[in-house]
Design a protein around this nucleic acid. Structure first.
Lengths: 367, 367
DNA sequence: TTGAGTTACGAAACCGGTTTCGTCAATCCC
DNA sequence: GGGATTGACGAAACCGGTTTCGTAACTCAA
């Protein structure tokens, strides 16, 4: 209408983004040549490559991720889907895990894409959306379940993924995990070495595969220590403090109560503390406790909890590393890592101050 | 070499992604028309639009995010940068916050992009990278500092952002925050109403702006309750359990000790519990305690901690909401929300069982 | 019947990169 | 010295969408 100065409307947000064609013009080259120079193609003269990379650095050129993603098919992003279960166990490990994973990704200038699966938008739908939109290049799957539909989906669609934890059927599944079974084994052997003969076990819920592994590790430890199986001292379902307390009370009510208890999870161990104290016993004297996880509260318990600590940050880091390798084309079977949990010796494991029989007597006297 | 069946190499991962041109061909339309139909342009016949949307739904068409981002300039993603401070305070609130934010973003089919700023790759560099790569459309800035360089960067580059918490200078800054000052105020008034006359305050570190606000709220509450200022009972620096314990010990050593203590953070309150118990006093009898944050441990303390709980999930949700509005073009000044923290009445606040003088006597008798 | 005004769509440019292909000039070899 | 190779780069197609612009076909009024 007025005149023809209606040109500069195409300014979305920040005005002057340096694009590859600008850089090419500045250098007197074609943009294709610049692109290849920056990607290290061999058909570019060394002098030219250096000139280009220097100019790119000086002028602060950075390829636009969406353009790069469109032509390469790589979004340079890994997905992590949160399940809004309100699960406090998940909550505790998430920050460190996130830190580790996104730190590793950041080293390659990748990012972590986080989405939540809510009851309305279910798990699988969220995964599908991200895949179909091609918004991510692969998935980190946490809290894997026995027959996990997410894993099935990934396999069906050929989308790269890595698992935190193991499953029953793991063909074609890259994973990272901490060896809970070894920790349980070592805990038993250690306690037996201290002189304990009756050793209880408070496991997680049976629905979890890791519980299966840990129970096996415990049993293997009993055998290795020359102690027969004591099935009456093995309880499961201890995934909260309250449950741990309840299960420990049950163990102490046994005719031949344990002088030591191995817990599959720290939260349960803290519950066991309460049960022991309620029986007017001292943790680390009449009843030793060893556990697994390494949560912060354990250090502040009285006595401080001896536990196998899981380096969640390292786990996140390792999983991101594996996923990048997987996306890079490495075969799934080569991408499996099982790290040991690290024993943090504190004050809850000591030689028994009392035998199982005497313990039983003291306990029944109180009743 | 062999023959010419070397065609199907251009298959990155999953083979058969439905693209808009396929959909157009299927419908006998041009891809431009299909795009406009899906975007709801008015120059498309109603019948056509319905035919297109139905086909898109039936065939499960989803636009490729990178292509869309390239042409629209919107990545449909919000950034959250983690500072790898190892800060346990940050850790505690992160999962809920993340859940809230990404839930809100997911409703609009956006995602949350998480990156970490490590010592090597500093904060500002990480922010710049994401901006220059155009990988995100805006930032959620947490743990805002007094003169925050991130905020300065966003303003300079014209990048949309929202803050969790407030600052001294907030021109052009959208934010969400919980009113810690109101909570402190109400806590004092409540305690005064129960009969307390000497009320102590354990604040956070002075470096934080929220501490300034909470201290003001506390002072305002004292005034509103008709109690004069008691500066000797106001301490700061309580951001860990140990620090809280230390500061509480100091308060109890005063000539006229407080019969109630208001803490700016729950962790400090739990420390204060220890100090009170160590003095052979009972929390909620000789010394009442009210606090702020709503961490899980508070519910398990003896007695359960009365505190103003912050709904972190709602905070994340609100911030994502504000950021989307901001990116949508809403003026910064219209995007400010201050929500009240919610009082969770439990057992640590009761009428004083003893006067400040008697309390002083009992305490000095113990020494 | 005709010309102006709508309506509904197709064609094509564009977003900012990557990659294939072709070509010119320099080099090599006999 | 001339044909075959090689080196280094430009041109153009392509990734999969969005948006502008142009234009047939249809509507309507005179």
């Amino acid at each position: 209408m007025t005149d023809s100065i209606a040109k500069k409307q195409t300014e979305p947000r920040a005005g002057n983004k340096l694009k590859i064609s600008d850089l090419a013009k500045h250098l007197g080259l074609s943009k294709g040549t610049v692109s290849r120079a920056l990607s290290g193609y061999p058909d570019i003269a060394v002098a030219t490559r250096e000139r280009v990379t220097k100019a790119a650095r000086d002028l602060g050129y950075r390829p636009t991720s969406s353009a790069q993603a469109l032509s390469t098919g790589l979004a340079r992003s890994a997905a992590l889907i949160l399940s809004v279960s309100g699960d406090s166990v998940q909550k505790a490990y998430l920050p460190d895990f996130l830190d580790g994973a996104s730190t590793r990704l950041g080293k390659d200038n990748w990012t972590l894409t986080v989405a939540t699966a809510s009851p309305e938008q279910d798990d699988i739908a969220v995964h599908k959306r991200l895949i179909e939109e091609r918004k991510v290049d692969g998935f980190i799957i946490t809290r894997t379940r026995r027959a996990d539909p997410r894993v099935a989906l990934m396999k069906e669609l050929g989308v790269p993924f890595v698992m935190y934890g193991r499953m029953k059927e793991m063909e074609g599944c890259p994973y990272f995990d901490f060896s809970g079974e070894d920790a349980m084994h070592d805990a038993v052997v250690h306690l037996a070495g201290l002189g304990h003969r009756r050793i209880g076990f408070i496991g997680a819920r049976d629905a979890f595969f890791m519980q299966e592994l840990r129970a096996e590790g415990f049993a293997a430890g009993m055998k290795a220590a020359g102690l027969g199986p004591q099935p009456e001292l093995m309880r499961t379902g201890g995934m909260t403090e309250a449950a741990g307390e309840e299960l420990a009370i049950g163990l102490l009510a046994e005719p031949e109560p344990p002088t030591a208890i191995v817990c599959a999870m720290d939260v349960a161990a803290l519950g066991a503390y309460r049960a022991v104290r309620a029986a007017e016993l001292e943790v680390g004297r009449e009843v030793s406790i060893m556990s697994y996880d390494g949560i912060g509260e354990g250090a502040y318990a009285q006595p401080p909890l001896t536990t196998f600590s899981v380096d969640t940050r390292a786990g996140g880091y390792a999983l991101a590393d594996l996923l990048l390798a997987r996306i890079g084309g490495a075969p799934a079977e080569s991408l499996r890592r099982l790290d040991p949990a690290k024993l943090i010796a504190r004050g809850s494991d000591r030689p028994p101050a009392i035998s199982s029989e005497d313990l039983a007597r003291r306990l029944s006297a109180r009743r």
